[in-house]
Design a protein around this nucleic acid. Sequence first.
DNA 1: AGGGCTACCTGTACGC
DNA 2: TGCGTACAGGTAGCCC
Length: 307
Amino acid sequence: MSFIRSYLWDTLEKILSTFDCLLCLFDEFVFFCNSCFMPELPEVETVKVFLEKNVINEKTKSVKIENENLRFVITTNVSQILSNSTITKILRRGKYLLFLYNNNFTLLVHLGMTGFFRIERKYEFRKHDHLIFNFKKKKLIFNDVRKFGFVKIFNAKEILNCSHLKNLGPEPLSSKFCYEYFKNNLNRKTNIKNLLMNQSFVAGLGNIYCSEILFRSNIKPIRPINLIKDYEITKIVDSVKKILLNSIKLGGTTIKNFVVSDEKIGYFKNELMVYGRDGMGCFKCKNKIVKITQSGRSTFFCSQCQK
DNA sequence: AGGGCTACCTGTACGC
DNA sequence: TGCGTACAGGTAGCCC
């Protein structure tokens, strides 16, 4: 009996300590989760919310550059400019993050394919750490395995006119992205998937969401845009907004499940209807999902449901 | 002018 | 087991 009691107690203690440990690492788990997938608009928005909670009004004591060789070399003036300044606001534009500082400088951040942030009280080096922001009681670390991401410093006045931001199309969740805007921009010679992927047409959509949006709209990704009917424009605009909003919402809820249940799956993986499902049955008609290559990128669709 | 292609990068999966 | 190769994708920059 005492053996059983002791065994149960040990087990309970183990479970509790694991749970406690998981809770402590909650913020890190959030970004491991993100790092499993390419950051598109909803993921960048989730990162933005995380940063708002953790680094707003925190004075940056110093910035250490562990490795300056990202997509663009990190200039040494980044650490000089940001030391002893305070982040007052975090903004998102498309897939870009903007850190606004109280000294009229703005740090432009792109997560690339695998970039993510984590917060630590005591810094522990991990492979592919590139940048460490030292605050009074914590550290913000930028890690990027494939180095497609970058950080660049700009004067606040120049930032909106920089080459990365000046040609970006409207935010898909804004009222600017609507039927009229879509209709007035169909004078390009391309197909619907490439149009949605084009950041100058609409900012923030990536390869995964484009496949999903077109499945929801019942439109084949290779369709030339001059053959898109008016009612289909409405359908696409609607799908863009619904899918993005749903994904942002899920980003905030199922991560908790991820932590508690320790399932090593991304939060929107369960929601994917076509992406990565080639050879498998369509959820609507059971027909096999097809994978093709468009402009060097994989596209997934159902030839039965999408015309 | 603008559309299309490719390099960049590294971990992972797979075949031999 | 171990090696080689293909693949994944966001963006800039080049080419046509």
